[in-house]
Design a protein around this nucleic acid. Structure first.
Length: 502
RNA sequence: GGCUUCCUAGCUCAAUGGUAGAGCAGUUGACUCUUAAUCAAUUGGUUCAGGGUUCGAGUCCCUGGGGAGCCA
């Protein structure tokens, strides 16, 4: 086969390039070919009529991922977006030349085939190939078929390889797409309108986080990338959109770990004439629908950070508990909120919890919540009546002016969805902003306050971290497993590794 | 940012400081219902990069790069 002087049989790329060159020399260029795809793999298999082999003719296409040739016939499998389908090729059907060429195909090549459906002795619905076309040559080999690709770095940098060889990754990331699709349908069914608001903002509002900074040359002005969707969506309430949502990317220039990627996807929903209690119903209906539609079960498996497994049950009513009660229960001190700061600090010391003496009282208390309590809330839990200092954008509770009308939905020990009765009093809102800005007037979004002065209807609002939701529902270990291309340091090797052999 | 740990063939992994190996994949051959197909033969390495210690380094030390985990 080879009249080249050097043996290239050990070099898989060279072998594949030689095959490509041979095809071209024979007058066929796979990169100039195409094929028909009448069915995806799963849809094709559903077309099989029980007991009637070779009654249905169709065309499928995909990447070769299994190759079992035995003499004059063989079975191969191709992978498309729905999964795999088996193909049966036979010399007697294809003809000697076409069959010989088929045997030279490699793992990873894209082919299109036309043929009829039948069921093998082993019971697998299979396409009996009448003709095929090579429509793209893979010049590099795939990772190993049995162990797949396990090198984390390569999984993230070359996600396409992970998707080809690791079925769980493919499934998990497909589920993410279905989750997002379901969220849209769910909200649209309830007459919510999807909008798109600016990512480049003058003031990074709606949350407390360090933003990415950038510069708009045309106006010679510094901008930041948004850290939240909130303030622009509320402007939509002012503008008369009663039910509005945005599903989009936020950016926070902070740490990266199993739960944080610098860019992440948030859903925010605002419903006029509702409140945080209305959001409870909405979020519960949404999650229960997601479980049914995407997962197919009311319960999901969850492994906590100590390796213990739990079943999280989304059915029925969910636990509702006041922030204050969680704190007094944890500390065993019914009068916790009446204690002096020194006493709180002393207590934290006694449980080995670091707190900075410069912190405010509420920060010390919240450190207990976030470090000691939050991760124990495994089953869906609405934590309500949070201290007002924790969020300046919510309405103050009518009975207790120290707390706000909000919940934080915590599942699997993670805060998944905060919701508020939204503050719509412009004067209270301004005072809260100014207290939070601590004298730095430029951090106050005056344009938003102007909008509030025009009148915003009472509303319930809610945010859901889509990545965390996906972690939960797909039982993923890390945010990197539910983001197609998680952020990594640039790889120096990648740039030099792609030059083709001359 | 700190601590711990990992980086060896295309992939998954071995290798007391003493000649770098296996499985899969590749190549050649056999095989017309396979399921990680099977059988026979066989190729393939700048051990992440650069220094150092040593008679001798994949292994020990240092610097750098990248990944993961824990902490901040």
């Amino acid at each position: 086969m080879s009249d080249t002087p050097t043996d290239i049989s050990h070099d898989q790329v060279a072998v594949r390039r030689q095959k490509l060159a041979d095809l071209r020399a024979a007058g066929f260029d796979p990169f100039r070919a195409n094929c028909e795809q009448t069915h995806f793999s799963d849809d094709a298999k559903k077309c099989y009529v029980e007991g009637e082999d070779n009654a249905v003719r169709l065309s499928v296409a995909g990447r070769l991922v299994t190759f079992r040739i035995q003499g004059g016939s063989g079975f191969v499998k191709i992978l498309d977006q729905q999964g795999q389908i088996q193909l049966y090729v036979k010399r007697d059907v294809l003809g000697v030349d076409a069959y010989a060429a088929f045997k030279k195909l490699d793992f990873g090549d894209f082919i299109g085939v036309t043929g009829t459906l039948f069921k093998t002795k082993a019971g697998e619905i299979t396409v009996r190939v009448e003709s095929y076309t090579l429509v793209s040559k893979a010049l590099r080999p795939l990772p190993e078929k049995w162990h797949g690709l396990t090198n984390d770095e390569q999984v993230y940098r070359q996600r396409y390889l992970d998707l080809i060889v690791n079925a769980e990754s493919r499934k998990r990331l497909m589920q993410r797409s279905r989750i997002i699709s379901y969220v849209r349908r769910f909200l649209e069914d309830r007459k919510f309108i999807e909008v798109e608001t600016p990512i480049l903002q003058g003031v990074a509002g709606g949350a407390a986080a360090r933003p990415f900074e950038t510069h708009l040359n045309a106006l010679n002005i510094d901008f930041v990338l948004r850290i939240s969707l909130e303030l622009y969506l509320k402007r939509m309430l002012v503008g008369g959109y009663d039910r509005v949502f945005e599903l989009g990317r936020n950016f926070r220039n902070e740490g990266m770990d199993r739960k944080h990627n610098p860019e992440f996807t948030m859903l925010e929903v605002y419903q006029a004439y509702s409140d945080y209690r209305g959001m409870m119903t909405l979020v519960r209906d949404l999650f229960q629908g997601l479980c049914r539609d995407v997962i197919g079960s009311d319960t999901i498996k969850f492994t906590d950070k100590d390796g213990n497994t739990h079943d999280i049950n989304f059915a029925g009513e969910w636990r509702e508990v006041r922030y204050k009660d969680l704190i007094t229960q944890f500390t065993g001190d019914a009068n916790w909120f009446g204690r002096a700061k020194d006493e709180k600090i002393a207590y934290c010391k006694s449980i080995d919890l670091f707190v900075d003496p410069a912190w405010e009282d509420f920060e010390i208390t919240n450190e207990i919540f976030s470090k000691k309590i939050e991760h124990t809330l495994i089953q869906p839990t609405f934590v309500t009546h949070l201290p007002k200092e924790l969020c300046p954008l919510a309405k103050i509770n009518l009975e207790d002016p120290g707390v706000i009308d909000v919940f934080e939905l915590t599942i699997g020990g993670m805060e998944v969805a905060p919701a508020y009765s939204e503050q719509n009093d412009p004067d209270v809102q301004r005072a809260m902003f100014e207290a939070q800005a601590g004298g730095e007037q430029q951090k106050v979004d005056n344009d938003f306050l102007l909008a509030l002065e025009h009148g915003m209807p009472p509303a319930g609002g809610m945010g859901i971290g889509i990545d965390r939701l996906c972690i939960l529902l797909t039982a993923a270990d890390s945010i990197r497993d539910v983001i197609l291309f998680p952020q990594l340091r640039p790889s120096a090797a990648a740039a030099t590794d792609s030059a083709p052999a001359a």
